[in-house]
Design a binder for these strands. Structure first.
Length: 412
RNA sequence: GCGUCGGUGGCAGAGUGGUCAAUUGCAUCAGACUGUAAAUCUGACGGAUUUAUCCUACGCAGGUUCAAAUCCUGCCCGGCGCA
């Protein structure tokens, strides 16, 4: 029995599609936004608020973080992550592959999912990418990073206490089995957009081998196979040819769905999607990892992406920025101190008309915790509402118009 | 009244002869953030500006010195102690 059923309700050739995914913990409609709850909590927001106020469909947690704290054994003893965190809806875990990048090549460099327009400082050249024959801890300190990759896996220095740990594809799958999410990801290497094509190819090959190993480990666990779906992750960097290559190889493996990983420059996301989605099987869900600005979601949907996850709505919320139909606003700006209008009347929903900008501006300035909560609920609802509008528009054959209209107002 | 310690930029608080328009924190202003090392980080923060420099500033007024927030004198104000 398959733990995941993906039903496509309507789709356009090589384009947007609407459907739903059933998991052992309920179903969700696609295209879907997966709210990120890295450490088994969506920062500043309770599960009850997610359900009733933010209209959250799916939550995504992180293997690396939960492994470090509290450890997968605790979560497993609690009865799995659903039980532990009291989220009984669809749940996903990410493999820790992104941390290979953010704590490794991207460490301290001002780059994460996208390159910045600013010239990045201290770009390490390919020397650091040379895997040592025998792993030596000093390599980490030598290059001031917390993670380093080799063929077998990745060695991490915990950002919490400096302890050295080792992740392999097998270990990542084992931890994710213990966490027990409905969907989880194969362990991959998220590469830097500043890596050369030859490195992208080398890392891609390794990610493909890791995908195979992740898949084997999962398939050998009969119990886990019944309850958990495994997604493989496409890499390939920014070159469309490499994207297509990686998608062809990962897409041919027996995964339940596919993640599209990597880090981009703003302008080549579209190309990467065009090249990287086509080789994937049409009947399986595609998840664009770590992307969540409205304009990027719309772009992804137009290419046939079914799932997104992103830190952006909650992180922005915590630092004082709200999404509105007319673009993002930073509540810490002087102009909102005396702005007694609702947060975003046009979006509707819980926080949009119950609280004023002046009140939230006050909470942020006073550093009250409730600021983060209200703002997070607002932003999450905004994105959920956008996803819902997107689905409706696909069903009604007017996605392109919707996209144009939305962006025109949003980017004015 | 006597003694003593002190008065520094919006606030707190360093500095105790030149490298001081003055460390740092807070506040303020602006910016960044996309599979969360993030309730975080970056920049600006006396005035003018040809961006080189000039002007005004460390309670007030004088003085010493090539040079004073820093030393001296007087005054004003505050804390503490004794009367």
């Amino acid at each position: 029995m398959n733990p995941l059923t993906f039903t496509i309700e309507k789709e356009f050739p090589n384009g947007a599609r609407v459907g739903n995914i059933q998991t052992p913990h309920g179903s969700f409609e696609t295209p879907a936004f997966c709210t990120v709850g890295t450490k088994g909590t969506v920062k500043a927001v309770s599960v009850e608020q997610l359900q009733t106020l933010a209209k959250t469909q799916v939550v995504l947690a992180n293997t690396y973080h939960l492994f470090l704290q509290p450890g997968e054994g605790i979560v497993s003893n609690a009865g799995g992550l659903h039980q532990f965190m009291n989220w009984h809806g669809p749940l996903i875990t990410d493999s820790g592959g992104f941390q290979v990048f953010s704590l490794g090549a991207g460490f301290g460099k001002d780059i994460s999912k996208f390159t910045t327009s600013r010239p990045s400082k201290n770009i390490l050249t390919s020397d650091v990418k040379t895997a040592p024959a025998v792993f030596d801890e000093s390599v980490l300190t030598q290059h001031s990073k917390l993670a380093i990759v080799d063929e077998e896996g990745v060695s991490f220095t915990s950002h919490i206490d400096g302890t050295l740990y080792r992740f392999t594809p097998e270990r990542s799958v084992e931890i994710q089995h213990a966490l027990g999410a409905d969907i989880f990801f194969a362990f991959d290497e998220c590469t830097s957009p500043e890596d050369s094509n030859s490195y992208q190819e080398k890392a891609g090959n390794r990610t493909h081998r890791w995908a195979e190993r992740s898949l084997n480990t999962h398939q050998n666990n009969v119990a886990a196979r019944k309850n958990q779906a495994l997604f493989g992750v496409v890499q390939g960097g920014r070159d469309p040819k490499l994207r297509a290559w990686s998608a062809g190889i990962i897409g041919a493996m027996d995964f339940d769905g596919f993640g599209i990983g990597g880090s981009f420059s703003k302008k080549d996301l579209g190309e990467a999607l065009t090249a990287g989605i086509d080789p994937l099987p049409k009947d399986k869900p595609r998840h664009l990892l770590g992307i969540g600005e409205p304009e990027d979601i719309l772009l992804g949907v137009s290419h046939g992406i079914d799932m997104f996850d992103c830190v952006q709505p909650t992180r922005m919320a915590r630092t004082g920025t709200l999404y509105t139909k007319r673009g993002k606003i930073n509540l810490l700006r002087r102009e909102y101190i005396r702005d007694f209008t609702p947060l975003d009347k046009e979006t509707g929903g819980y926080s949009s008309d119950k609280y004023t900008k002046a009140y939230l501006a006050h909470l942020f300035r006073a550093k009250e915790m409730l600021a983060a909560t209200i703002a997070s609920i607002h932003n999450l609802y905004f994105i959920e509402s956008l996803m819902s509008d997107i689905r409706e528009s696909i069903r009604d054959n007017r996605f392109n118009d919707f996209r144009t209209d939305f962006l025109q107002k949003y980017q004015q």
